[in-house]
Simulated scan of single mutants.
Amino acid sequence: MMVYQLDHVVVWVADPVRSLAFYQEVMGLEPVRAVEYAAGEAPFVSVRLGPGTILDLMAVASAPKVDALTGVEGGAGNRLNHICLAMTETEFEALHQRLHAGGHGTTSPYLTNLYGARGNAPRSFYFTDPDGNVFEARYYDPA
């Protein structure tokens, strides 16, 4: 059986600069190509989820160009149901605190034993970014 790695996910946003501030300051993610984007040298800015995975913060206004690139009319600009981010328990608690401290809050209470790629997660919660994209944060027992 083949095993693939997730390279990137495109998240549609109204204002990439505003969104970058949320992903960097609230979620604690490292920006990628922010300087190039600000200089007009990159069509979008990204944030790093891990060594080989990024989120592209793509302006929804560019959806027609992305449709032309992919050859799929109406395929761009749509939201996913949610993106689940796995992290350590310490990172999980810190993100929860930053969301509440920044006035963003969460859209669910702590949930328990939800199944994912690594089995059941002891706790998770859902939250949204400024554009309404839904995320789930979770951690797994280190054992």
Rank of each mutant, 00 (worst) to 15 (best):
M1K: 10
V3G: 05
Y4V: 04
L6C: 07
L6H: 07
L6F: 12
L6T: 12
D7R: 12
D7K: 11
D7Q: 12
H8N: 13
V10T: 15
V10F: 05
W12N: 13
V13N: 02
A14T: 13
V17K: 11
R18D: 10
L20H: 10
A21Q: 14
F22Y: 05
F22A: 01
V26C: 05
V26E: 06
M27R: 08
G28W: 03
L29Y: 05
E30I: 09
E30M: 11
P31N: 02
V32P: 03
V32R: 14
R33S: 09
R33D: 12
A34D: 14
E36I: 07
E36Y: 06
Y37D: 06
A38E: 15
A39S: 10
A39F: 05
E41P: 00
V45H: 03
V47P: 04
R48I: 08
G52D: 04
I54F: 03
I54L: 13
L55R: 01
L55D: 03
L55F: 14
L55N: 05
D56C: 13
D56I: 04
L57F: 02
L57Q: 03
M58E: 15
M58Y: 15
A59Q: 10
A59P: 04
V60G: 02
K65R: 15
T70H: 11
E73W: 05
G74F: 02
G75S: 01
G77R: 10
L80E: 06
H82K: 05
I83V: 15
C84H: 02
M87L: 04
E89H: 01
E89M: 00
E89L: 00
F92N: 02
E93N: 11
L95S: 09
Q97F: 03
Q97R: 15
A101D: 15
G102T: 11
G102E: 14
G105M: 09
G105N: 08
T106E: 08
P109N: 10
Y110M: 01
Y110I: 00
Y110F: 10
Y110W: 09
Y110V: 01
T112V: 12
N113R: 15
N113W: 10
L114D: 08
Y115M: 15
G116Q: 06
A117N: 12
A117K: 04
A117E: 07
A117D: 06
G119M: 09
N120I: 03
A121T: 12
R123E: 12
R123S: 05
F125S: 04
Y126T: 08
D129G: 08
D129S: 07
G132Q: 07
G132W: 08
V134A: 13
F135G: 03
A137M: 13
A137P: 02
R138G: 00
R138Y: 04
Y139V: 01
P142R: 10
